[in-house]
């Protein structure tokens, strides 16, 4: 972003990568695929790079409102300094926080999640599923991330990316507004679970595996970690891939 600003240019959209997308090895792949999609359709985008900082989401869910608001205000300053108006995020948590919780602190942006961007591009005819890997006949089930689905009522966008694949979409019993959490939300990602008789991601992946899918799709880096760990727990990583909507879209269009 800084380079673009130095040249006196401004992006059509800012890609908010997020901490997982920046640092988590698995999520970094998703980040690169989101960039490939943006480049494929010729959208002029920028990233904040080292100027990006945690949105404050995990701090807020864990009850640390001070830390959240410190992060939020610093980020709003950065975004406003570059006169950012439109943002796409690679993570439902960043999406929810910037879209819903930044406005009353002075940060007003048009924020979408990458699944919504993919849906828009499909609707505009700019993005198809051609020239790449065929998903024909593959069984795919989609896991709704809480902060995308129930949190913000985005259920159709990620499914739109799957519907153009000519694949067999199967829904888990607990899907859409009844979706079961992967277990990472509310800052659980950063702590050991409380005492219980099962891990939440195991409960969830059992449900997904019972459908015998080839692919478990999601669109959240934290769900990605939890679901992948779940698949590994059952030694199914050869048969069942856990993929992000962006990765599936990039593969289907031969962008990788």
């Amino acid at each position: 972003m800084a380079e673009m600003a130095a040249k006196g240019e401004s992006p059509e959209i800012l890609f908010w990568v997020g901490c997982a997308g920046s640092f988590d090895e698995r999520a970094q792949k998703i980040t690169r695929d989101i960039c490939r999609i943006l480049e494929h359709v010729g959208l002029k985008y920028a990233v904040l790079g080292t100027e990006e900082s945690c949105t404050g989401d995990p701090a807020k869910r864990a009850g640390n409102e001070f830390l959240f608001q410190m992060q939020a205000m610093a980020n709003i300053q950065t975004l406003d300094a570059y006169s950012i108006r439109k943002i796409v995020t690679g993570c439902p948590h960043c999406f929810n926080t910037i879209k819903n919780e930044y406005p009353s602190l002075g940060g007003n942006y048009d924020v979408i999640h990458h699944s919504q961007l993919i849906q828009q591009l499909i609707d505009e005819g700019k993005l198809k599923a051609e020239g790449g890997e065929s998903f024909k006949g593959k069984r795919i089930t989609f896991h709704d991330p809480c902060y995308l689905g129930r949190g913000n009522n985005v259920y159709e966008a990620p499914r739109a990316a799957l519907e153009i694949l000519d694949a067999e979409l199967v829904e888990m019993k607990r899907c859409r507004s009844n979706g079961l959490c992967c277990g990472a939300g509310g800052a659980q990602m950063f702590k050991e679970p409380e005492k219980g008789n099962k891990d939440i991601n195991i409960e969830r992946i059992e449900e997904a595996l019972s459908l015998e899918p080839n692919i478990v799709a999601s669109s959240c880096p934290f769900c990605m970690t939890m679901l992948s760990d779940g698949v590994k727990n059952f030694n199914k990583e050869q048969e069942v891939k856990v993929l992000d909507i962006a990765e599936i879209t990039a593969k289907a269009n031969g962008l990788i």
Binding site: R61, C146, C181
Partner: peptide
């Protein structure tokens, strides 16, 4: 309180 995933179910 620390067992909650804030999932809104």
């Amino acid at each position: 309180i620390w067992a909650c995933t804030t999932c809104n179910a």
